[in-house]
Amino acid sequence: MNDVPSQPWSLMMRIYKEIIPNVHRELDLWREKAEHIPNEELRTQAIASINSKTFHCEGGSIYALLAMYPDRRKEIIEFIVAYQTISDYLDNLCDRSTSLDPEDFSLLHDSMRHALTPGVTLEKYYRLREEQDDGGYLHDLVLTCQKVLEKLPGFPQIHSGLIELAEHYCNLQIHKHVIHEERVPRLQRWFSENKKELPAMSWYEFSACAGSTLGIFCLVSYASNGEVDPEVVHKVKEGYFPWIQGLHIMMDYLIDQEEDKDGGDLNFCFYYESQDRMIDRLLHFFKMADRSAKDLPHSKFHTLITRGLLGIYSTDAKVKRQRDVQNVLKKLMRAGGMSAYYFYWNSWVYRKVKA
């Protein structure tokens, strides 16, 4: 059985003891498969997505601690690593793409939809691009996700919620990777189609909320414990989308501003009219994420997640080069309190040891 961590130190102890070793074990298996991909470009992007984005799988797999039984926790980590690896791999393929075709991006991301529906027929996801032979790599990732999901006792209750969250994620990836002139108009049009169902926010904040997989991981973890009450599914879905997921991705864009400016990449923080406005909105996202966390089962665990996001992103090496970002993070850290500082120092030490 499992006691879900409710204190910063107990959470970090479990992460170091249970999560990180299992995540790295899974990633080693996928890296080995990636190294045998026949097509050079697909092989390059698959390996790069694992080597440069390991922390995505480490962070996402924390949700496995919501699973009550040890065997289930390992299965949940297997799912999370596979699903996040699909996400990171496709992000690399679209970001550094030989194609700017939204139909190609949509077909690639059908793999993320199919990964959430056991038994669905897999497709030739590369058929609209030049590079096609991955030696079965993407199919294996999808099948691994399906294999875990079909064994979860609560899967039938969460399936529609998973698809809804995945649909938002996939749409974002399609719209933000097309030719530069079309990106913002497509994202604005997409926002206008969803605006009536959202709390007050801008098109770029909505886009950020769609760009996280945390809500999916949370639902899958709860489904490992038995049938999931529809009210719990609703609260998780509404709590993570938009607020907790929005906080997650806005923190990511916050620290990437210099890099994205140099690379000419889309960054949702660029669209705030002033730094003061950006600070106000990020603080609002944090407060709403915190409020959402308090409505969830294991509320203390989810509250720790919101503080962990502040602490972990604040220690990224990119922050040192950006004085304005440092000022924003200081205000967010103060709002997060002692738990956020605990995660900050823990993350700082972990990054030093890894380096």
Rank of each mutant, 00 (worst) to 15 (best):
A335I: 11
L304M: 10
L310M: 11
Y313W: 05
L304W: 04
S299I: 00
S339R: 06
F286S: 05
Y313I: 03
M338C: 13
D276R: 07
L296H: 00
L254Y: 08
L304S: 05
E258I: 13
K320F: 14
D256S: 12
T315Y: 02
I305C: 09
D295N: 13
L309D: 01
M251K: 04
D316E: 12
H302T: 05
Y271T: 04
H302Y: 01
I305P: 03
Q245V: 02
I279P: 01
W345A: 10
G336Q: 08
G246N: 03
L296W: 00
I255W: 08
Q326T: 13
A335L: 09
N346E: 09
N267K: 06
N267I: 06
Y253E: 06
Y272V: 03
G264R: 04
I255M: 05
C269N: 07
K330R: 14
L296M: 05
L310V: 09
M250K: 08
G336H: 07
S339M: 04
G308H: 06
I312F: 07
G337K: 02
R291G: 11
A317S: 14
F270T: 07
L310H: 07
Y341H: 12
D265N: 14
N346L: 07
I249C: 10
D260H: 10
K331D: 08
F286C: 04
L283G: 09
Q322S: 12
G311Y: 03
S292F: 04
T306L: 09
H302I: 04
L332E: 05
L309N: 05
D262R: 15
M333R: 13
V325Q: 00
Y342C: 09
K318A: 15
L309M: 13
D324A: 15
T306I: 15
I312D: 00
L283R: 10
K287L: 11
F285P: 00
D295V: 05
D295A: 13
K330C: 03
V325Y: 00
M288K: 14
S314W: 04
H298R: 05
G263F: 02
Q326M: 12
Y342P: 01
R281T: 05
K331V: 09
W345T: 12
K320C: 11
A335D: 08
C269D: 01
M333C: 13
Q322E: 10
Q257T: 14
M338H: 13
F286G: 01
D276V: 05
L296C: 00
K261L: 15
G308P: 01
G308W: 04
C269I: 15
D265Q: 13
D324M: 13
E273H: 11
N327S: 13
K330H: 06
R334S: 15
C269E: 01
K287H: 14
H284P: 00
H248C: 06
H284C: 06
D256V: 06
R291L: 06
D324V: 13
I279Q: 02
I244R: 02
F301K: 02
F343P: 03
S274V: 04
S292M: 11
D260E: 11
K320G: 12
L304P: 01
H284K: 08
G263H: 07
T315A: 11
L310S: 08
